[in-house]
Design a protein around this nucleic acid. Sequence first.
DNA 1: CGTCGCGTTGAATCGCGTCAACTTCGGTGG
DNA 2: CCACCGAAGTTGACGCGATTCAACGCGACG
Lengths: 231, 231
Amino acid sequence: MTSHIHCQNCSMAPLCLPYLLNPEQIEQLDSIIQRHRPLQKRDLVIHSDDPAKFLYAVRSGSLKSYTLDSQGGEQIIDFHLPGDLIGFDGLIDGNYRSYTQALETTMLCEIPIQSLDQLSTELPGLRRQLLRVVSSELYSSKTLLGNLNHHSAQQRLAQFFVTLSSRFQQRGLSSREFRLSMTRADIGNYLGLSVETISRLLTQLQRDGLLQVQNKLVAIHAPERLRALAV
Amino acid sequence: MTSHIHCQNCSMAPLCLPYLLNPEQIEQLDSIIQRHRPLQKRDLVIHSDDPAKFLYAVRSGSLKSYTLDSQGGEQIIDFHLPGDLIGFDGLIDGNYRSYTQALETTMLCEIPIQSLDQLSTELPGLRRQLLRVVSSELYSSKTLLGNLNHHSAQQRLAQFFVTLSSRFQQRGLSSREFRLSMTRADIGNYLGLSVETISRLLTQLQRDGLLQVQNKLVAIHAPERLRALAV
DNA sequence: CGTCGCGTTGAATCGCGTCAACTTCGGTGG
DNA sequence: CCACCGAAGTTGACGCGATTCAACGCGACG
């Protein structure tokens, strides 16, 4: 029995599709959305080349998206937190172009693309928010690209933590202490750095008193200094 | 007198907003679009933080988009060719977040965001194409990120030429010979490499017979070998 | 003719990747 | 609950690829 889960009472709504809608409209949106069975760690939600029937919204947990290079290696292109929408690459030609995998136990909302399209005819706010979210992702992606291109390993990692921290804050969670659901290898892959470099930088940041790391747990001690590093 | 310029007879239409529209609908779209005065090299079309009233479509010429880092340095995030749409980052909160500058004499179509939004209520095809274009950009941006992260300087540059070449081909131009409207410094900035590295790689690719470069002119001699390099 | 932006080339440096050894964590089964 | 084993993480030594610094060539333009 999961009928108590609705957009109407979802704390991620302000970050998600309901943002520009009034209560009545949110109800309309909610009526086309299915709650997905919980995903376990390593479960694949989206498989590249599959027909794209749904967008997904993260309700709880976290995921990574990746493509495969010519040797079959993962190229991580995104980490998803609650409130994030997943599956936009399926809108290009009707098939997904990447894989999305749960990093921990995760709950998703399943949004049928076709119903969403129909509903967006009636609800200008929905249409705008959809475009707003994709544009925003596009912008983040481009600036991230610029940042990675022009910065050292330390700056990249600092930037990664600063961004992650602010995303947690947006979601009403602590920006100072959080758990990394991804491995060091995932972070390295995402930032274009080797696992060893990530590990070395972490001990270095810790030695310099910027943060503390214990396994997956991160406590940021000097956010302003970290932000200064990130440039 | 530029009244002969319309979406109806624009060769870039299949790449642009009209893609999913029938002739009558294209006419509706055309009626909200203004032709922009020609831009000269170095003219700024979009200034970061300005209110975003328009999207722009490139009719001819080319441009670069960039943000500024904390020291005021350019971070190039995109090169735009005919048929491309510009200005999506203005949809996030109503203000542009980057700069866009002409690399040569350039003609733009000016699309009022508000009218576009209204028209997209009536035209599902317009709505879908808009979302399609942004999603597609998003996907390119993410995979580019993955590519740059995981590849050597040579692979990056090869990838750059392969992509550029295929974009020219999509636009009905030669995929074998084209003119680079951007400088070596621009390319290096975009790919996260120094000018010197770009220069060295170009002479090397030329020495290996993959392509020929004379100033801005590029002739690709062995597209398949270039593609193999890009991986 | 001189200047300035752009591009090329060489030499020296260094940041990060690679390889390798070792430790710790976490899950699974007895 | 503990023993075990593979996955994940850490640390050190070494090498290489790309940056940096510097000098120079070339064409455009006043």
